[in-house]
Design a protein around this nucleic acid. Structure first.
Lengths: 146, 146
DNA sequence: AATCTTATTGCAAATATTCGCAACTGAAAG
DNA sequence: CTTTCAGTTGCGAATATTTGCAATAAGATT
C-alpha cells in the first residue's frame, strides 16, 4: 500500500468522502519532497486538472493537519509549509532575524512529549515542531541589522 | 523605570527611532494583560490618537519580536497573539481540533534550550512556545468531529 | 440502478497581513 | 537652532487565507 493510499484510507476510515480533488491533493503532498506550501500543492494539482480550487486545497490541508495526518509549520517570515507525517520527524529551528531554517534532531523532544502527556494529558505533535530563536550568525551581529 | 520605558530604551539602544506611534504601540502591548492581537493593539492605540496605521502596528510588533523584546504565538486556528517578554514564560498547548489552549510549565523546556544551544549554537526563544497537539477531550472523541 | 442525505466544492466576498513608494520626521551634526 | 539624511509612516495595492452559500456529488440505503 502506497503512502497516498494509506492517507486516503485514513480519511475514509474517519468518515470523510474521497473526492477526485482530495485524491489529487493528497497525492501531491505525499509526493512532494519535503515541505510544500499550499500554493505549490495547488499548482501541482492544477497541472493535472482544472477541477481544483485554492480554497479546497486549504481546506484539505487543514483537514489533514487537524486529523494528525500532516503537519503545518509556520516558518516565521510568512512561509507556511505542509508535510505528511511520513516525512522524517525533525525540529525546525527558525531564526527570527534572518529567517534561516535549520533542522535539529527531534529526539531532543522525546522527554518533553512524555511529560506533556503525563502532566497535562496532552498529546503533542512534535514531529515537525518549529522553534523560533536566533541563529549563531545573527546573535553575533545583533546590533546592526536594520 | 517602567516596563514600557525599558522597552523603549532597548529600541533606542538598538538604534531605532522612537516615534509617537512606536511609543503608543509599545505602551499598548506592555499594558495589555497577557496576550493581544495586532488588531486589538491597533484599536487600543486608536482610542488615543488617529495617527496610527494598522501597517505600522504590524511593523512595530515584528520589530519587537525580531529583537527578542516580544513574542508572537501562532494559536493554531488563525489567532496570532503578541506578548512582551515581561509576561511570565509558559508553554502554550494548542489543541489542533478544538482550538483550546492550555498553559504548561515552561521549565519543561529548560534542557531542550540548553541542548539546542550546545549542539546547534541556536538561541531558542522558549518563553512562549506554542505546541500543537490533541487535548485529552478531543483524543477521546476523535472519530466524530466533522 | 435510482434515491436520498449531507459532506464537499467553487466562487466571490471578507479578512488578515505584507509591501512599494512618496512624503515626513527623529536625532545626529554643525 | 537649522540642516541633513536615513529610518518611519501612511496609503493604497498586492498577497495570503478564510468564510458564506448555493450547487454538486460521494456513498449509504433500498
Amino acid at each position: 500500500m502506497t503512502h497516498c493510499d494509506t492517507l486516503l484510507q485514513a480519511l475514509r476510515d474517519l468518515g470523510y468522502r474521497i473526492t477526485p480533488q482530495r485524491e489529487m491533493i493528497v497525492e501531491a503532498i505525499a509526493h512532494a519532497s519535503g515541505h510544500a506550501t499550499a500554493e505549490e500543492i495547488f499548482e501541482q494539482v492544477k497541472t493535472r486538472t482544472k477541477y481544483v480550487n485554492l480554497a479546497t486545497v486549504y481546506r484539505t490541508l487543514d483537514l489533514l493537519v487537524e486529523r494528525g495526518l500532516a503537519s503545518r509549520s509556520d516558518l516565521w517570515d510568512g512561509r507556511v509549509v505542509y508535510t505528511t507525517m511520513h516525512h522524517g520527524p525533525h525540529i525546525h529551528l527558525v531564526c527570527r532575524q534572518c529567517g534561516g531554517t535549520y533542522d535539529a534532531d527531534h529526539t531532543l523532544l522525546q522527554s518533553l512529549g512524555d511529560q506533556l502527556l503525563a502532566s497535562y494529558d496532552f498529546t503533542a505533535d512534535l514531529q515537525h515542531l518549529s522553534i523560533i530563536g536566533l541563529c549563531a550568525d545573527c546573535r553575533n551581529k545583533t546590533k546592526n541589522a536594520h
